[in-house]
Amino acid sequence: MKNTSLIGKLISHREWLLAGIIALMLVGVGSTAPFFISPGNLAEVFDDTAILIMLACAQMLVILTRCIDLSVASNIAFTGMCVALINVAYPDTPALVTLIMSIGIGGVLGAFNGILVWLVGIPSIVVTLGTMSIYRGFVFLLSGGEWVNAHEMTPQFLALPRATFLDLTVLSWIAIAVTIIMLVFTRFTKTGLSIFAVGGNPKAAVYSGLNVGKYQFITFCISGAVAGMCGYLWVSRYAVAYVEVAVAFELQVVAACVIGGISIAGGIGTIWGAALGAIFLGLINNALPVIGISPFWQLAISGLVIVLAVIINSRSEKRGGRRILREAHR
């Protein structure tokens, strides 16, 4: 039975629903605080959300394969500390090289998660719960608990994410580029398609000659690499590296995916959904203080939205029976 009701149509086009809610929120907040929807402020909000968008897109790939990566925030802290210390030790390192190094370091951390999941066969939630603590512990070992502050970092190191181009920061442009690359990756590459397949029906994937574990490994590598890159961007944007950088941020990342309609059961989701979910959370975080809602309410509202999103998801994923009768009658 096709959903013919308005609600049914809206839910089946979840990205549009989410985009509509985001637009409504902008209109609502804009009517009480017009400056909020000025292009300059929106660019700032986007800049503030850029890291969440990239992480949500990468996390989506992991979730599509029926896994989860809880170690991304620790990966950010570790990679961020690594590149900050390298910058202190070798101030001449060009920012672009730093960026590439951060992708590499993060990718290695992700690959370690992936190998434990693929070859050792440990459930991803256990693996990444463990590495979440391990990677965070490494930050302490590296830094001895010390902070790396802005004055120790070189101007080039700090400038990269803040530089602007066409009124948007480089950080924002990187997020846009990552989103577009992910869109192409999920839609137009064999690996992208296979990721959907192994999560949607692992058994059928084996019959089709797809190695489920290998694709899970690949998504962990991608998630790690993106997190590593975000580590550099985070540390340079906030101009400080310390042990507690991005603590508990993985929960926001997973929440963005859930809000964006990515099925925790695997196989269902779009990059648009993940990106919009992240933008939605970013907007809430930025808009609520503007309209004078206390930070405590912010947490509760974010939580409420996540629960609502899960309810909507589970409704729309509920499939009808096998439809044995030729003509269904009500």
Binding site: F196, G200, K203
Partner: peptide, 18 residues
């Protein structure tokens, strides 16, 4: 039926033979 319900007909046909 070892196929992928969430993928389209085309995607199912060419899942490993693109």
């Amino acid at each position: 039926a070892v196929m992928f319900d969430e993928l389209t007909v085309t995607e199912n046909i060419f899942i490993n033979n693109q």
